[in-house]
Write a protein that binds this DNA or RNA. Structure first.
Lengths: 312, 312
DNA sequence: GGTTTCAATCGGTTTTATCGATCATGCTCC
DNA sequence: GGAGCATGATCGATAAAACCGATTGAAACC
């Protein structure tokens, strides 16, 4: 059942195609590929000829290359093909020299500020040849970046949606943060039910911590207050300031408290009693079948160690 | 967040690698790639140098190239990368000229003999430029072939396991086949429960029809008889002969009956009454994200038409 | 109308893939 | 143990291609 070899497009030509789609400009796309505009232009024409298919709307009013529907489809397929080729090279590179080279790590804002100051030195010490690029963003954007290949590894809180391999690291229990002198601070712990009588402040929408906290309290989505008139808290630090200012109470992950989010604010924290230990699960995540999956899993102990409160 | 472009392996070199893994012999692999042995050898050496990784056990006793563990891993990744490149070319080819070129179709043995005599002429008439290669095999092997890229399209019965996109075509209800004069043949239809008192013959293990029939009758797997002393029926035609020989009763799909599986055998068929219309669902199946998915779906009406009993 | 921007084209150069032939090595068999 | 054989690596030459720099043609802008 041998079939005649179909004419495979060259990776270089596919890179030209993808770069043009990314930059929308022959000159800039060429620069991104480190070739001249004439080379990129000729390469695309050759690709069109070899595939015997029109990829670009030629001859029409210019000012921006216009792709045909087929062209757009091929751009998407070219991306996956290039990613597959990179996976080959990356697999070899990892086998040759693990824990080295660039690693693009995405971290959510409710983890990053509290963990990275401890994690980064530990990683530098354990893997000196690793070149760590950081990006802090909301879970959804990080997952999109991971799936698009712009990020290699995520440090986030479960549950989270997306097609990725996840490795749970540690539970991060929620604590109740109260203004100093608040009546709920009399006891060692606060039952979840007691929160329904309080003004519960949470981060603005989009932060996974908001959804996780609502779930922990058994609240339907959107019931908690974001603050007056849509003035929502944008970080845990501002949230603490709002609690200190007597605007309400909130939930804070233990990690943030260990990380010093309270500072000198007049805020008290108490354990939260509820069914099934309210909290979130911190985890690493990467693309399924990533060539570096083994390497990433190998980082887990270092990250988990940095999560321990006593870690320096 | 621009990263230095990793050195991508050339598709040609990856083909050399895959061909060597397939043939286990430099000369034959080179022939399969339509190059000389020296070219293939040099190409693989260049690949090893570019990836800076050992792919083959060099210098040891020869008689057969031995891959390193990394080499084997790279062979697998090279296969997927080449498949992704082919998908680019194939997408363009399909857009340029749909319903043409080679199509490797897998069919299960309980469909093929009864449908293909009607389907093939219809397909030839509707898509004269389509070059149809056929392979008849058990569901499991067909699915493996599809996933490995040796087949493009399957015609099978659901439910079936495997990662593929399926398009249901038509229900294929089961009928009871009885020896002429059998007491159950007195009535127009046979209740499912009545079969438990009969010697139920089914195809040998591996045929999905066996599992589907067992499920239709509410039988646990393996309860039905395959025949005396492991002498199992290997096709529906032999099964009919066994029923005609008074060895027991069986279930036949309507498709096979319409396709003339009974011949002149002294066998009667009756409707089977049971919960939820006992039968199987005939379907097309292809790889998820196949470039030709739209083309395959377009074949469905032609196939469904050939499934109609009245079709010529 | 002149200018600017942008992509396609052209000629020349460098790089690379490939071939055919040869060489090195380890088996096999007498 | 040595001749013969099969297999894969190496070498020099050649043809193909990828790429660059400069130029051209055409639309958009002022």
């Amino acid at each position: 059942m041998l079939l005649p070899t179909p004419h495979l497009p060259s990776p270089q030509q596919l890179r030209y195609l993808v770069a043009l789609a990314d930059h929308g400009h022959f000159g800039r796309a060429a620069a991104a590929c480190a070739v001249t505009q004439s080379t990129l232009s000729a390469g695309l024409i050759a690709l069109e000829r070899q595939l015997a298919a029109g990829l670009l709307e030629r001859g029409t009013s210019v000012k921006r290359p216009v792709f045909t529907p087929l062209g757009l489809e091929l751009v998407a397929r070219a991306r996956t093909a290039l990613a597959a080729l990179e996976a080959v090279a990356e697999t070899a590179a990892m086998a040759r020299d693990p824990h080295s080279g660039p690693l693009r790590l995405g971290v959510i804002p409710t983890i990053g500020p509290f963990l990275l100051p401890r994690l980064m030195p530990a990683l530098r010490a354990a893997y000196p040849r690793l070149r760590l690029w950081l990006r802090e963003d909301l879970t959804d954007r990080l997952v999109a970046g991971l799936e698009a290949g712009r990020l290699d590894l995520l440090l986030l809180a479960l549950p989270a949606a997306g097609t990725m391999e996840t490795l749970p690291l540690a539970e991060d229990p929620f604590r109740v943060a109260l203004p100093r002198g608040h009546h709920l601070a009399d006891r060692d712990s606060v039952p979840v039910g007691a929160l329904s009588g309080e003004r519960l402040l949470l981060l603005e929408d989009g932060h996974c911590l908001r959804a996780h906290a609502e779930a922990a309290c058994g609240l339907p989505r959107g019931l908690a207050h974001s603050g007056e008139e849509g003035f929502a808290a944008t970080s845990l630090h501002t949230l603490v300031q709002m609690v200190a200012g007597n605007l309400g109470v909130t939930l804070l992950p233990q990690l943030a408290i260990d990380g010093g989010v309270l500072g000198n604010s007049p805020v008290e924290v108490r354990r939260l009693d509820g069914a099934a230990a309210p909290g979130r699960m911190l985890a690493l995540a990467w693309r399924p079948r990533s060539p570096r999956a083994a390497e990433f899993a190998g980082l887990a102990p270092t990250v988990a160690a940095a999560l321990e409160p006593g870690a320096t």
